[in-house]
Every structure is written in structure tokens, then in C-alpha cells.
Design a protein around this nucleic acid. Structure first.
Length: 829
RNA sequence: GCCAUGGUGGCGGAAUUGGUAUACGCACACGCCUUAGGAGCGUGAUCCCGCAAGGGAUUGUGGGUUCGAGUCCCACCCAUGGCACCA
């Protein structure tokens, strides 16, 4: 009765252990001497002034549980943490409050470290990185210079995505459904000269390497789609009455005998020549129509195009090309359904076998020819869009291709076109080069200066870090805020000479995060390497030993941003001879999304759950276990205020059982460790179940196995010291504070995370006696208890003798008898 | 439209290879303890019929393979995520 009043006090216990862990430097990894390195990484957060939200916990706590389990399995686990500190959140906060981002960031980092510690994670704070610190961004700039040196960084004029709200350009990856990934404002197109990194050089490798990675299939497919590799052929068409040629890209040259027209994008050079009156056709002057159409098309926004739907518009140029295959004339049209940025910006129209071409042809009265037999054998003329798409079939109306399957025909025609010099096989990609310039303040300055003629020069490495000036307004105006800095310009002139100007743009924050996993391995950098050397960037021995990251955990929203940029940068670094691996993240896992009442948590919806009140009341262990218990880690789940009770009860019951049993043992000094076979077997089954669950990151079932075991122990009424110890160890990854407290109560030495993970005896996980189900004609009709190793015949006889079974088999002939050892008997009558 | 993933009680979910579907927990009902309970403990429960013993149905829908299907195959429906006038 006395023990019943004793409650587990999470706050006291958790504080006590967090202090002990810190004092023992329990989470500090010895990078140099580790024998079995295991790099456990989570995507680092940006330092926000708000409290850690449930999403952070849902990402970090289970990741930490996995890392703790791995450590107990005997690995030298390195679990670092840092801050993706440059970027819009800090800058927007500065704009609102006038507090310089450097100041607010430093403060936020401090509070977040405290919050992250409260989770009870094993972060090795000695290796902290902060991307906004000059000791970090000097390497962001150094990386830029390596890219520049190796011709992977270049500046070019072009149409770019511009967010009118953030007042900066964006990379393609950062435009989602035509909107800014950060603020969801409609993005517009602007012609600007900007810096790019040549990610397209690695397009092929980025696709090919996916095969070897242990990543979610979904993510691989997303990257594949994003890179958009397409194998096809460029076919050259001569234009009648001119010396001009048009090259069309197609993946379906097999249908080329069915071509009846050509369409080019409004931005295509030939369209410009027609519009400008440079070329005049015999059939009349179409310059004004083409130029008007091109101007209208240029004005259209993404929204206009969506509103227009698939309705085709276009104008005739007055010119025709010739299909070399059959001498047919192909009128050349201009239409905005053809994209200037894909392929060659020109398409050969085969209306019989492409829906868009069909729509265009019917819109403008262009003939439609069938060159593939329909699946139902139909060879009649095509009259509706439903008849169009044929991905299977044999060729007709196609000269030497007739009768061939479309796949054979594709190869044949490609060979034929290449042999005659009319075409060339090519591979195209959807992926565009990475635009890394940003017209924002809070980022790493691009280490470039311009001479008085405006020519770009890289800043010599000895001048790094090329410091971000502080004498600026933060308010974005579309012009880079750095243009206002007198100090920045003075500094440039002082070093490089009068009339020299610095590059005023800063780098995309995704540049900072594209290599941070390497910087964690350089915890005590030479504070001022001048000039910086390769070895200061990353120690090759450490890189070889620790990379690639063993397990990387973070949200799926980064599939086509950070996760593609980081892979590209690692590949480039390998080519520069700086690292030994091509891929940064061997295994990737996405945590699921945690919602509230089915909706994504957001401040504007006012449905954000703050962990704090729950932690104050139940403690971090209960909170993190509840998040893990909600369902599989990768699925996410919907928040519920009440469900946490179940975990709280579990923790209290564990506590009560431990304190009552262990106290009792002490007081009466009686031996309570005589083994009970049932409990012993249950213990082994529990170890097996928890181990299997943790291997699969199914924390929810690991917890339910422990609950089941606890239910059994409570029913037995006592706890032997051996079982108590193992129970504490099994709880270690899931509820680290409680586990250490229980471990201490059982007289365990050291910390739980330093102990070996419990092992089980497979022989002990099976029962002596098993319950066997009996089915008659597939329906359950009874069960019997037999010895686990009872021979088949004996079990079948017992089964057939079963009273209820008798009712169903009496007087009938047994057609089949099946015994699945230890599971069931199946009788067929 | 295309690709991917998923659909199991009132709810979150469990069920490595086809082998007793609904473990574990929440919520619920009843009981115990209590001055009290937003505490604790115990019992019950997928649904339908039945006082009960028991029977029948059931893993989105419809078929199929099998002694046996949540699991494998085919068709369809729905949900979520991604891509989308990409030639």
C-alpha cells in the first residue's frame, strides 16, 4: 500500500540523468579512434525563436532512439547536431524587429540547444556547426571557388524565377506548382544575369547511382522524375525556300511517317527571324501574326496557362519543312504548348499518335495519319482523341517499317535517320542548372569581385572568409541589400583597387547545407587557416572512415532540393579529389508527417501542438514514446491529446513494479530470483520482438511488446533482478532517462547506453506446448494443445477426436489432412 | 492523364515467409477502491442473430489461384504524395 503512493517524477529523474550524461561526456564520439563507426544524422533545423514543435520531436526523438539502439549493438555512434542558420526566417525576423540576424540567431541557437537537450538526445555538442558563422561560411565560399575553378560555377543571362514577396530569384527546385516554396507567392519570370552551378553535368550519374542507394523508393522515383532523363533523337528538317533548318527532338521517331506539321516555341530562333521580318515566305508575310503571338505568349503567367487548360493556340509561319523520309511538306507553326526549355524547342507533329498534336491538328485543320494499328486491330482513320495514344502495336503506312512492332521500328528508324545524316540520337534531361544567387542579406556572400570593366574574378582564398557586411538595411527591395554597404565596397577597393566592386548577391542556403555532413567531422578546425587547404576543409582519413552517412533521417519535402544538391556536391568533391565517396547518404529514411485533426500544423491555422505542456506534465520519455507509439515512424500520424495517457500509465506501472519488487527483495532479503519458466520464455520472446521491431524502425511495436511483457510480469506479481535489468536495457533506446534510473535501481554500473544489447536464445522463444487451430474446410472449428514436437499423426488424431470437429467430419470422407507444425490442422471433407 | 504509396473495429494501429485477423493502446461500459476523482485496480467488448451453448459475416469493391488469402494474381473504386501541354 505504501508503494502505491510513490509516483515516478519525470522532471527530477530526467534532469538528474541529463546532468550525469553531460558530466560523463557520454555522447562525445572519438572520431579518430572509432573501430565501428556509425554516422547517425538528422536534417539540421534552422534556429527559430519559437519553441521546438512536435514535428522536431517526431523527427529527432525516434532518430535518437535508433542511434541509441545501434550504440548498444556495439557501434561507435556519432550523432551530431547543428543549425542551418542562414536564410529567410532569421532575415524576416530581423526585418520585423530590427534586431540584426546575427544577434537573434546566436540567441536562438542557445535556447534551441537547451530544448534539444531536454529531448534526451545523444547529440555530440562538441561538433556543433552553425552555417552562419564565418568559420563555417568561409568553407561555403571556398566550395564556390572550387566549383568556379573546375568550371562548375558560371554566370549567365536568362529567364529566372523571381518571388515578388521574398524579392529574390529562386532555383527551379524551389518553385512548387508555380509558387515560392517558402512563402507560396506566385513566382514570375524575369530576365537576369545570375550565378549557376552546373548540376546538369551530373544528371546521368545522379540517376544511375540511385540504384545503389538504400532510400525510399518514393524518393528515388521523385528524383528520377525531376532529373527527367529521356532518350530520343534530334531530327533535322530543311525549310523550303531558305537555307534554314529546324531540329526537332522526339522519343517516338517510329511514328515519323505520320508527321504532318512542325510546331516551334514562340521563343525559338526561327520564330524570331520570321517575326523580325528577316525571312519572308512566298505564301505571304506572317511576320506580324508571329510577333504578336510571341509577345502575348511571353506575357502569359503560369496561372493564365492553367486557366487556358489544354486548348491549343498558334499561328502559321508561312514556311514549310520537308520530311526527308517521304518528301512530304510539313507546315511550320508557332505555339506556346511547345516549351523553349525542353529538347530543342521544336516538335514534329504526329497527330495520329500524340494527343497534344491531335488537338493542335484538329484545331487548325491539319491532316491526321494513322501509322500504328490499334490494339483492337482497327486501321481506320483516327477521328477522336481517345483513339490517339497507342503504346503498343504494329506499324502501317510507314514504308519499310510496316509490320514491325513499334519498339523494333524505333530502333530501325533511328539507325536509318543516323545513316542518312538526318538525325542524331540524344539524351535530354529535364534538370536545369542550379541557380545559386540570391538577392538577400542573410547568406554567404558569393566570393567574386568585378574589375572596372565588369569582368568577374574569384576572390583569392587567402581573403576568406569574405565577411558579410553589417552596415545594411535588411529590407528586401529586389536589389541585393549588400549594395548599400559602404564598408563592403571600401573593403573591395582597398584589396583589389579603385573601381572594383564586390558581387552583391549571397548564396542560396541550400549551398550551405549541401556539405554540412562533412563539416561535422572537422570539430576543431584550425580557426584561421590562411590560405585554407584541402585538409582544413575535410580530413581525408576521417572522410574515408565516416562517410557515407550510415542513416540519414529527415522530411520527404527535401527529395528534390537538399537531397539532390548534396548528392551533386559530393560527386563534384569526389571529382576534385577531396573525398573518396560519390554518395553522401547511404541509407535515407523519411519520418512521417504529424498532423492535428487531419491538417498540417501551422501557425496560421492555429493548430500547432506545443510539446512543452506535455513534457512538463509527463516528461520527455513519455512524450517521445507516445510519438513513437502512434504508428510506424515513416507514416506519421494525427495528434491526440488523450492517447498519451496510455504511455504515462505504462511508465508509472513500470516504476511501481520496479520499486515494489526491488524494495521487497531488499527488505525481506529473500531470494526472489528463482526462475519461472513461463516468464523466462516470455523474456526471450520479448527481447526478440523488441530487437526485430527496432531493426525495422517500428518503434510502435517495440513499445507494445514491452507493454505485453509488463502485463505478464504484473500478473506474476514479482520481478527478479535479472529480468529487471534486461527490462531496463530494452527500454534504453525508447525511454533513456527512465531506463538509466531503473538500471541504477537494479544495481547496474555505468549507463544503459554503454551496455550491450540483450541477446535471446531462439530455443527459448518457442513454447513446449502449442495451441493448434483445427480447420474443417477452411473454417475454424476448434483448437487443441499439443507438444511442440508431437508427430503429425498424433496431432491429426487428436484433432479429429475433438468434440466440435467431430460434428463436422462425422460420416464424411476425409479428402485431405494437413498439419502445419505448431500452427494448425486443416481437414477437407 | 502518368508514376508511387496506401485502404484492417468507434479511434491510432498489430499480423517477416500465405497458416487461429483485430496484438498493444485510446475512447467506451460495468464493477471495486475512495470524502472525492480528470487518480488507481479489475472485467467486458469486431459486427449481426441468440438468455445461453453456439452459429453466421468480416481486412475498400468484384473475380481468381489455394486445403487455407489482410498477405499472391486480374479488374475496378477511393485516399495521400509527386510529376504534368516534357514531344
Amino acid at each position: 500500500m505504501e508503494q502505491m503512493q510513490e509516483f515516478y517524477d519525470p522532471t527530477a529523474v530526467e534532469t538528474k540523468w541529463q546532468e550525469k550524461w553531460a558530466k560523463a561526456k557520454l555522447h562525445s564520439a572519438d572520431l579518430q579512434n572509432a573501430k565501428k563507426p556509425y554516422y547517425a544524422l538528422v536534417m539540421f533545423p534552422y534556429p527559430s525563436g519559437d519553441k521546438l514543435h512536435v514535428g522536431h520531436w517526431y523527427n529527432f526523438a525516434p532518430a535518437d532512439s535508433a542511434a541509441r539502439y545501434t550504440r548498444m549493438k556495439g557501434f561507435n555512434v556519432f550523432e551530431p547536431m547543428g543549425f542551418d542558420a542562414f536564410g529567410l526566417p532569421a532575415e524576416n525576423y530581423a526585418i520585423k524587429t530590427g534586431v540584426p540576424p546575427a544577434q537573434s540567431t546566436a540567441k536562438n541557437v542557445e535556447t534551441m540547444i537547451k530544448q534539444l537537450t531536454r529531448i534526451g538526445t545523444m547529440y555530440d555538442w562538441e561538433k556543433l556547426v552553425n552555417t552562419s558563422d564565418p568559420s563555417y561560411y568561409r568553407w561555403t565560399q571556398w566550395l564556390f571557388l572550387q566549383m568556379y575553378k573546375n568550371n562548375l560555377a558560371y554566370k549567365k543571362m536568362g529567364m529566372v524565377n523571381f518571388c515578388p514577396s521574398c524579392q529574390t530569384v529562386l532555383a527551379n527546385e524551389q518553385v512548387w506548382e508555380g509558387k515560392c516554396e517558402r512563402c507560396e507567392t506566385e513566382v514570375v519570370q524575369k530576365p537576369l544575369e545570375q550565378w549557376y552551378w552546373k548540376i546538369t553535368n551530373y544528371a546521368q550519374k545522379l540517376v544511375d547511382n540511385l540504384d545503389q542507394l538504400d532510400w525510399p523508393k518514393k524518393t528515388k522515383v521523385m528524383q528520377q522524375n525531376w532529373i527527367g532523363r529521356k532518350v530520343g533523337i534530334d531530327i533535322t528538317y530543311e525549310i523550303e525556300g531558305t537555307t534554314e533548318k529546324i531540329v526537332c527532338f522526339t522519343t517516338r521517331p517510329d511514328t515519323n511517317f505520320g508527321a504532318t506539321f512542325i510546331v516551334i516555341a514562340p521563343e525559338h530562333p526561327f520564330a524570331k527571324k520570321v517575326a523580325g521580318g528577316e525571312l519572308k515566305s512566298q505564301g505571304g508575310d506572317h511576320a506580324s501574326e508571329v510577333s504578336t503571338y510571341a509577345q502575348q505568349a511571353a506575357k502569359k503567367t503560369e496561372l493564365d496557362r492553367q486557366a487556358e487548360g489544354r486548348k491549343k493556340t498558334g499561328v502559321f509561319t508561312g514556311f514549310s519543312a520537308v520530311n526527308s523520309l517521304n518528301g512530304k511538306k510539313l507546315p511550320i507553326w508557332v505555339s506556346d504548348f511547345v516549351l523553349a526549355g525542353f529538347g530543342t524547342g521544336a516538335v514534329v507533329g504526329v497527330p495520329g499518335h500524340d494527343v497534344r498534336d491531335f488537338e493542335f491538328a484538329t484545331q487548325f485543320g491539319i491532316p491526321v495519319v494513322r501509322v500504328v494499328v490499334a490494339s483492337d486491330g482497327d486501321t481506320s482513320p483516327i477521328t477522336s482523341a481517345e483513339q490517339v495514344q497507342e503504346k503498343e502495336g504494329k506499324m502501317i503506312n510507314s514504308s519499310f517499317l510496316d509490320g514491325l512492332d513499334i519498339r523494333e521500328a524505333t530502333v530501325r528508324i533511328m539507325d536509318h535517320l543516323e545513316e542518312n545524316g538526318w538525325g542524331k540520337r540524344v539524351t535530354t534531361y529535364r534538370l536545369r542548372d542550379w541557380l545559386i544567387s540570391r538577392q538577400r542579406y542573410w547568406g554567404a556572400p558569393i566570393p567574386i569581385v568585378y574589375d572596372p570593366e565588369g569582368k568577374a574574378h574569384p576572390i583569392p582564398e587567402k581573403h576568406l572568409p569574405w565577411l558579410l557586411p553589417t552596415d545594411v538595411e535588411f529590407k528586401p527591395t529586389g536589389k541585393s541589400p549588400l549594395t548599400e554597404s559602404k564598408e563592403f565596397i571600401a573593403r573591395t577597393e582597398k584589396i583589389f583597387g579603385k573601381g572594383w566592386r564586390p558581387e552583391f548577391d549571397t548564396m542560396d542556403t541550400f549551398v550551405c547545407s549541401s556539405f554540412y555532413y562533412l563539416r561535422y567531422l572537422m570539430p576543431n578546425p584550425n580557426p584561421n587557416p590562411n590560405p585554407p587547404s584541402k585538409k582544413d576543409f575535410i580530413d581525408p582519413a576521417l572522410e574515408k572512415k565516416w562517410m557515407p552517412v550510415s542513416m540519414y533521417i529527415g522530411g520527404p519535402e527535401h527529395a528534390c532540393m537538399h537531397l539532390i544538391y548534396a548528392r551533386f556536391v559530393m560527386m563534384a568533391l569526389k571529382d576534385f579529389g577531396l573525398v573518396s565517396h560519390e554518395e553522401p547518404f547511404q541509407r535515407l529514411v523519411h519520418q512521417g508527417l504529424i498532423t492535428n485533426k487531419g491538417a498540417k500544423m501551422s501557425k496560421s491555422k492555429g493548430n500547432v501542438v506545443s510539446p512543452d505542456s506535455f513534457i512538463d506534465r509527463h516528461g520527455s520519455d513519455v512524450f517521445r514514446m507516445y510519438l513513437m507509439f502512434m504508428g510506424p515512424f515513416t507514416d506519421g500520424g494525427d495528434w491526440s491529446d488523450t492517447g498519451i495517457k496510455g504511455i504515462d500509465r505504462f511508465v508509472q506501472r513500470v516504476w511501481r513494479l520496479f520499486s515494489s519488487s526491488l524494495d521487497e527483495g531488499k527488505k525481506s532479503n529473500k531470494k526472489v530470483d528463482q526462475k519461472d519458466a513461463d516468464t523466462e520464455r516470455a523474456l526471450h520472446r520479448t527481447i526478440k520482438a523488441v530487437t526485430d521491431s527496432l531493426e525495422r524502425l517500428h518503434f510502435n511495436t517495440a513499445i507494445s511488446s514491452l507493454m505485453e511483457f509488463l502485463n505478464l510480469l504484473e500478473a506474476k506479481g514479482s520481478l527478479t533482478p535479472d529480468i529487471a535489468k534486461t527490462f531496463a536495457l530494452l527500454l534504453g533506446p525508447l525511454a533513456p532517462h527512465l531506463a538509466d534510473e531503473l538500471w541504477e535501481m537494479t544495481g547496474g554500473k555505468g549507463f544503459v547506453v554503454e551496455q550491450s544489447w540483450p541477446t535471446f536464445d531462439p530455443a527459448m522463444t518457442v513454447f513446449d506446448e502449442v495451441t493448434v487451430a483445427i480447420q474443417v474446410n477452411g473454417k475454424l472449428r476448434g483448437e487443441v494443445v499439443v507438444g511442440a514436437n508431437a508427430p503429425q499423426e498424433e496431432v491429426l488424431n487428436v484433432a479429429k477426436a475433438h468434440e466440435n470437429v467431430q460434428k463436422y467430419i462425422e460420416g464424411k470422407t476425409l479428402k485431405k489432412e494437413i498439419y502445419v507444425p505448431g500452427k494448425l490442422v486443416s481437414l477437407v471433407v
